[in-house]
């Protein structure tokens, strides 16, 4: 009875193609189309091989197929060419996504992973992140990143637990971790990058659809790993400006 319910649940689960969440960033569409063609090609190859395998068992000795060495090498070369094509397409895409610099007008956000929470810091109107000191870290006291009040550039820094980004504008993210390695995973944006203590990893993306998206942790980081999640809110440029000015005003009052 339970199995039947599960089967019905599976059928009822309507998800987009290949179960991937709907793409929400510029490069995500390119990744999806490459993923789709690669999966199709490999699935076809896999099915063909399985059919040949079953044929080998079913055929009797009299019906056997003989593959000359030339055929076998031709098949090997064909598969190798498929791999070469996949590699060229994938490497080209990797270059355009990861081997380019962020645009100068990109929104700057620093992402910090800590057991079991994500924090997002915007540099504020001065465009510069203030100093932090590890001794000042006090999540309960409202200073989870250890901002140093003696540094004037830290006064306008905005620390948020929600990542808010404007649509259709590039965002440049600097990834850090305080304690252990965390994995910053934004499934709808097709972005995954580890946050490692002692290093900064940088990458950029351009969200192109408004809405709320899940951010999860993809690198086991301790007992709360499964609940280390946050929200990315992609809003219009206007809404982003409003949100930013509200946060700036609140920051100025402190």
């Amino acid at each position: 009875m339970r199995t039947v319910r599960i089967a019905i649940g599976l059928l009822a689960l309507r998800t987009p193609f290949w179960w991937m969440p709907r793409a929400g960033s510029l490069h995500a569409h390119a990744i999806d189309s490459l993923m789709r063609s690669s999966l199709f090609a490999l699935l076809a190859l896999c099915v063909l091989a399985q059919v040949l395998l079953v044929a080998g068992i079913v055929l009797r000795r009299e019906q056997r197929a003989r593959f000359s060495p030339a055929w076998r090498w031709a098949a090997t070369v064909a598969v190798a060419l498929l791999f070469v094509w996949m590699t060229i397409a994938a490497e080209e895409l990797w270059s355009t996504i990861r081997l380019t610099r962020a645009e100068p007008h990109a929104v700057q956000v620093e992402v910090t992973g800590v057991q079991f929470q994500w924090y997002f810091r915007y540099p504020g109107p001065d465009g510069i992140y203030g100093k932090t000191k590890p001794e000042l870290i006090d999540a309960a006291g409202g200073n989870p990143l250890g901002l140093d009040p003696s540094d004037p550039r830290s006064h306008d820094d905005i620390v948020s637990s929600v990542l808010v980004l404007p649509v259709d504008r590039q965002a440049n993210l600097q990834l850090r971790a305080q304690d252990v390695v965390h994995g910053f995973f934004l499934p709808a944006m097709r972005v995954m990058q580890n946050a490692t203590p002692g290093r900064v990893s940088e990458f950029h993306l351009t969200p192109n659809r408004t809405g709320d998206y899940a951010i999860v942790c993809s690198q086991v980081c301790g007992l709360g790993h499964y609940r280390m999640h946050a929200v990315l809110r992609v809003v219009s440029a206007q809404q982003f400006a409003v949100w930013m000015s509200q946060r700036e005003a609140a920051q100025a009052e402190r």
């Binding site: 990744i31 490999l42 499934p187 097709r190």
Partner: peptide, 17 residues
């Protein structure tokens, strides 16, 4: 068959882990 997907940095960085 899924090896060549995981071999590509650009595809692996969606399905990694």
């Amino acid at each position: 068959a899924t090896g060549p997907i995981l071999a590509q940095p650009v595809l692996d960085s969606y399905v990694h882990n």
